[in-house]
Amino acid sequence: MDLPVMPPVKPMLAKSVAKIPPGMHYEAKWDGFRAIVFRDGAEVELGSRTGKPLTRYFPELVTALQERVPERCVLDGEIVIARDGHLDFDALTERIHPADSRVRMLAERTPASFVAFDVLALDDRSLLATPLTDRRALLERALTAATPPVHLAPATTEVDVARQWFEQYEGAGLDGVVAKPLALPYLQDERAMFKIKHERTADVVVAGYRFHKSGPVVGSLLLGLYDDGGRLQHVGVSAAFAMKKRAELVEELEPLRIDDVTGHPWAAWSDEAAHETARLPGAPSRWSGKKDLSWVPLRPERVAEVAYDHMENGQRFRHTARFRRWRPDRTPESCTYAQLEEPVRYDLAEILGESDPG
């Protein structure tokens, strides 16, 4: 491979802001695996956000890119998987598997798509210093004839349209909106763009915690919600605390600490089979490896308000929730899934202008 921009490339990043800024280039914020595509003739490499290759996990995309993008190019975009008109992040994570046979089976069962939103090089020309508006025009021309599973990300310079996307597209599993200055060059590994994500709050049960890697202070709180059957389901963690607060939380939660997990709603957490029928903390997986997943059980009596941006399949917080405050006025039993706001469904095909994005 011999391209004007060579791997590894760390993609340009975005910083969070509360509102959509005016006078910019806007795109939907895709919820998949960020990927840099390098193509030089028959050679195709998919680089991850960290620079490590994703190529072996998406063999169907390698074939599709060989057929649908310019012979010599470097593209920035997102790998996604769609099911029933909605992004499915869980299906995407299943691809990161050591067994090649399983990867290829999943490539046939749940094929991935690539949504391109920037171009870093074409032919023998690096475009890293080229303004965004010019890069976008080149990208549109380069992908004029592209067909699924390769897509050109919709874009607009109309802030009112971006606001509409922000409201509608969450129903298809998208994360929000990205705003980019019109003259922006491509700045690797810099937070030069802006992301506006949905934020909601929920009252959750704090039923345990894990220690921080630095020592005997709280690393993350384990959060739960009651389902319709009255079972406390593990829905995620809250982890962003100042070191002083981490130490204070150990002392504050000490009266709720129990030495024996027997009788706790998540007592079966170490039984891998139990995770098939309930959401529990700590099952070993390909992601955790040999990581210590042990945790300190608490009587599920304390309620906290947390902020979150997205629910995965309506069951758990996609990202780490942000602690807001304790809610002594709420009972644990009142912390149910019913409080969560469900976005209105929106068909992903409408966004991409195709009959089937997968």
Rank of each mutant, 00 (worst) to 15 (best):
A28V: 14
L348R: 02
F117G: 05
A349C: 03
L249N: 05
L232I: 03
G208L: 07
D40H: 10
Q188T: 09
Y337T: 02
H25F: 14
S355Y: 04
V177F: 00
F114E: 05
S220R: 02
F241R: 00
P7Y: 13
D227C: 07
P111V: 04
A304Y: 06
A207C: 03
F38C: 06
G23W: 00
M243I: 09
V119G: 09
D124V: 15
F114H: 02
R318P: 12
L280V: 05
G289F: 08
R68D: 12
L223S: 01
L13K: 11
A129R: 12
A28S: 08
P131G: 08
D123R: 14
R286P: 01
E305Y: 05
D84M: 03
S48E: 05
R109M: 10
A145G: 14
L298I: 10
W266G: 07
L120Q: 14
C73V: 14
P154T: 03
S113A: 15
S355D: 10
K29A: 11
R68Y: 15
A99D: 11
K197V: 00
R286H: 14
V159D: 04
H86K: 14
G353A: 09
G23M: 01
K195G: 00
R246G: 07
M243L: 10
A349E: 04
G171Y: 00
Q168K: 11
V178A: 03
R56A: 13
E60A: 12
M311G: 13
A349K: 14
L138Y: 13
E248A: 13
T336G: 02
V306F: 00
M1S: 09
Y346G: 00
I96N: 04
R246L: 04
Y337A: 04
G47P: 08
L352R: 08
H310L: 14
T336R: 03
E170S: 02
C335A: 10
D292W: 09
G230E: 04
E158I: 09
G215R: 10
L222V: 11
D124K: 13
D259K: 04
A129F: 14
A321I: 08
T147H: 12
H319D: 15
E272F: 11
A14R: 08
L348W: 06
V296I: 14
A268P: 03
D259A: 08
E43I: 12
Q339H: 07
Y169P: 00
E94C: 07
R257H: 02
V237D: 05
G176L: 00
D260R: 11
E167H: 01
L184D: 02
Y169T: 00
H97W: 05
T157M: 08
F317N: 05
Q164P: 01
A183D: 11
P59C: 06
A207W: 01
R316I: 04
L187T: 06
L143E: 06
R316D: 12
R95Q: 08
L106Y: 15
C335T: 03
R299K: 13
